[in-house]
């Protein structure tokens, strides 16, 4: 068998195992850890399109997350539109927001880009608190409970949520894989490596940054809806808070660059963090977060290529 076939086989086996997880695990807390792992992996993967491939360190993705979560929830509360549809409305709005934000922000580079997107996140957060007639202000919006209604994106058990986020995750892996292998992906890489050189060889830098931003925002908004439906709640702190703002970047950095980085980063840190909370109680949530911060500092200092980088090094070490 060729190595390509082995890879596909491994992928299919992995998928089958992941699909079978809820058949063997009934414990909701363990399923919750699985759900959050894919949740964070998805977030980082969606961010990666702009953050890693195009090399634009966005701190504005919380905006798209929030737009997704708020749009589907507001449409559901006021017009009874199912979040399955509201999710797409939110995604389109988020993509439009990304284009509107990209127009000024893509003029600045590197750390300045990070700061200007951060400024927009803070600004949008204030606006969501101010227009409280629509958004519920600082207290946020609860998603009205309808019981076990699959058509309304509400389930009483964890397993359907697990399959939903797993499906999301498979979609995003497929999309990022396609981006990575496409001409568009190579344009983004060129922009990441040297913007001026990319411009010099005739790549329309601004246009491709905008496309990347719109795609990334579109995908991020889905996660916002998922979050609102899963926790049945959305508020400015969860949507636009500092932690949400930095989350995708930090997971991506921890995992490492590339297609598998987000999953590796999320798969190692989320279970540690969530099991600390489950085993020791809510007070230890801050302890888990403390470790998270420490992990980011250590990775930056000693392993800038992330966990994927370490795994690769170990792998080549044993092969030779």
């Amino acid at each position: 068998m060729t190595s390509k076939r082995i890879k596909i086989l491994l992928l299919l086996v992995g998928l089958a195992v992941l699909c079978a997880v809820p058949l063997f695990i009934n414990d909701p807390t363990i399923l919750h850890i699985f759900i959050y792992t894919f949740f964070f992996a998805y977030f980082a993967a969606a961010w990666n399109v702009v953050g890693s491939y195009a090399g634009q360190p966005s701190l504005g993705h919380a905006i798209f997350f929030g737009i997704g979560g708020y749009t589907s929830t507001i449409l559901f509360i006021n017009y009874g539109i199912t979040p399955w549809l509201g999710m797409f409305v939110g995604a389109i709005l988020a993509a439009l927001a990304a284009l509107a934000l990209g127009f000024p922000t893509f003029r600045v580079r590197g750390p300045f880009f990070a700061f200007i997107t951060l400024a927009f996140t803070l600004l949008i957060s204030l606006l969501f608190i101010y227009f409280h007639e629509y958004t519920g202000g600082a207290t946020g919006l609860p998603v009205p409970l309808k019981g076990d209604e699959p058509l309304l994106f509400q389930f009483n058990s964890k397993a359907p949520y697990y399959y939903t986020i797993l499906a999301f995750f498979i979609v995003i892996m497929f999309v990022t894989y396609k981006v990575e292998k496409s001409k568009f992906g190579y344009y983004l890489l060129a922009i990441r490596e040297d913007e001026d050189a990319a411009k010099a060889v005739g790549i329309h830098v601004f246009k491709y940054k905008m496309i990347a931003a719109a795609l990334s925002a579109f995908l991020t908004a889905f996660l916002g809806t998922f979050y609102a439906q899963y926790t049945r709640f959305i508020d400015p702190h969860e949507a636009f808070g500092l932690w949400r703002t930095f989350q995708p970047m930090l997971i991506s950095v921890l995992g490492g660059y590339g297609l598998w980085g987000p999953l590796v980063g999320a798969a190692i840190l989320t279970p540690i963090n969530e099991s600390i909370i489950i085993i020791f109680g809510g007070r230890y949530a801050t302890f888990g977060m403390m470790l998270y911060g420490l992990a980011v500092m250590l990775i930056m200092l000693f392993m800038p290529k992330g966990i994927v980088g370490i795994l690769k090094r170990v792998y080549t070490h044993f092969r030779s």
């Binding site: 970047m249 911060g293 420490l294 980011v296 500092m297």
Partner: peptide, 13 residues
């Protein structure tokens, strides 16, 4: 910036 973000979340928590 990423290092400092780690420090931020570490110190706060």
């Amino acid at each position: 910036i990423i290092f400092a973000a780690g420090l931020l979340f570490f110190a706060q928590n």
